[in-house]
Simulated scan of single mutants.
Amino acid sequence: MIASTEKIIELIDHDQYLEAFPILKQLRTDLTEEGYLELLKQMKQNGYKLFALYNENRIVALTGVGLQVNFYNKKYVFVYDLVTDKEHRSKGYGYKLLSHIEKWAKANGAEFVALESGIQRTNAHRFYEEKLNYNKWCYSFRKPI
């Protein structure tokens, strides 16, 4: 349950995006502010949405998602980014944010919420599996070209 000082909103304007950047950079350390804004503009054209969990009017966690359709998941939400500010970790914010996304996904007709997590992120994997009941069901591969 979200405390009275907490709220989750979709970020929709430039000032909100700038406010979110320092938190997202904790996950995507290679981003510059300029690169972030340019990529965000392109991603939003493809349906990317950025949600923030605020506590006492300050962003403490972010997630970037997109409503997708394919043959194996049908209609689903893909979680591209999930990060809690390093000063606010282990307080349940990631759980609250993903729970919100699951409700949002269902309200938008999605059958699943899917995400990828780096092989080395064993604590995150434990969180997804044990706290949120996500199933580890495939490997994801990529090749630089």
Rank of each mutant, 00 (worst) to 15 (best):
R126A: 14
K25P: 07
W137A: 06
E111G: 07
L31W: 14
A61D: 08
C138E: 08
Q68F: 04
L11F: 04
R126M: 13
L67G: 01
K96R: 08
K131P: 11
P144A: 06
N123D: 14
S4A: 09
I119Q: 04
L62F: 03
P144M: 05
S140N: 05
K44R: 15
I2L: 13
K136M: 09
I101E: 04
L115I: 02
K49G: 01
I2F: 10
Y54C: 00
E19P: 09
N108Q: 07
N133Y: 10
L82E: 04
G35W: 07
E116R: 05
K106Q: 13
R126Q: 15
D15S: 15
A114I: 01
Q16K: 08
T63P: 05
S90E: 10
Q16W: 03
G109P: 03
Y72C: 02
Y17H: 14
Q26Y: 01
H14C: 14
N123F: 06
F127P: 08
G35I: 05
L53A: 01
N46D: 12
K131R: 15
P22G: 06
Y72T: 01
A114R: 10
H125D: 03
T29P: 08
N55E: 15
T5M: 02
V77D: 06
E56P: 00
S4T: 12
E111V: 00
A110S: 06
F51N: 08
V79W: 01
Y17S: 10
Y72P: 00
R126V: 14
T32M: 12
Y139T: 07
R121Y: 01
G47V: 09
T63K: 05
Y95H: 12
R28Q: 14
T32L: 13
F78C: 03
K49V: 02
I145C: 04
V79H: 01
I9T: 06
I12F: 10
R28I: 11
E19A: 14
G47T: 12
A20E: 12
K7S: 08
K75N: 00
K75G: 00
L18M: 15
R28E: 14
R58K: 15
Y36F: 15
R89V: 12
A105E: 11
L82W: 00
P144I: 04
F127H: 10
G118R: 05
V69F: 06
W137L: 05
A124L: 03
V69R: 02
L27M: 11
A20N: 12
Q42D: 15
N108S: 05
Y17K: 12
E129S: 12
L11Q: 04
L62T: 06
F21G: 11
H88F: 09
K86I: 08
A3M: 10
Q68T: 02
E38N: 15
H125L: 04
L40M: 09
L82M: 07
T122K: 14
L97V: 01
V83M: 02
I145S: 07
D13E: 15
E116G: 06
S90M: 05
R142A: 07
N70R: 03
V77W: 09
V69K: 04
